[in-house]
């Protein structure tokens, strides 16, 4: 199934991101800026979940290696230099999963959420999709780009 192009999708990504950062990442105002300017800074990793069913698309979180270590460090309650690659994948994937689950709840239903996947942004492709909306969270001076994509076959995130 593909999305009806006439369907207007209204998702408040800023509000969802704020809820997630506030609950899990101690997103105090002093270190977090929501709806931050998108400076187009290069990102290294993308964590995504796919939505399949009445809504077809992906929720993607992209950030730098340093930012991903910061997330893992806080979620695992460890020092940044102690986190492993597996820790980073788990933490960033779960961040995408929580954001995706909350986004899915305001999209047409029923649909199912995939398990998260994390890979280098240079290897991720979502052919046949269009960007519905995006927001940038600036946390600890690092940008996290949260993007909702629409369309494409359900398994079209082609990692290498």
């Amino acid at each position: 199934m593909t999305n009806d192009v006439t369907t207007t999708v209204e998702v408040d990504l800023d509000m969802i991101a704020e809820q997630v950062w506030s609950a899990f990442l101690n997103g105090g105002e002093e270190e977090t800026i929501f709806a931050a300017p998108d400076t187009g800074a290069p990102v290294d990793l993308a964590a995504s979940v796919a939505m399949v069913g009445a809504y077809e698309g992906h929720l993607v979180v992209s950030c730098s290696h340093k930012a991903s270590r910061d997330v893992a460090s806080v979620l695992f309650a460890m020092e940044p230099d102690e986190v492993t690659t597996d820790d980073v994948g788990d933490a960033l994937g779960e961040l995408a999963n929580v954001l995706g689950g909350n986004v899915k709840s305001v999209l047409p239903s029923p649909s199912q959420l995939s398990l998260p996947r994390v890979s280098a942004t240079g290897h991720e492709r979502w052919p046949g999709t269009v960007e519905v909306c995006r927001t940038v969270v600036r946390w600890r001076d690092e940008p996290y780009v949260v993007t909702l994509l629409s369309g494409g076959p359900s398994n079209n995130a082609q990692g290498v």
Binding site: F24, A72, F76, D90, G93, N97
Partner: peptide, 9 residues
């Protein structure tokens, strides 16, 4: 939970 970090949280 399949996420180790979420089990910790």
């Amino acid at each position: 939970d399949d996420s180790r970090v979420m089990r910790q949280i």
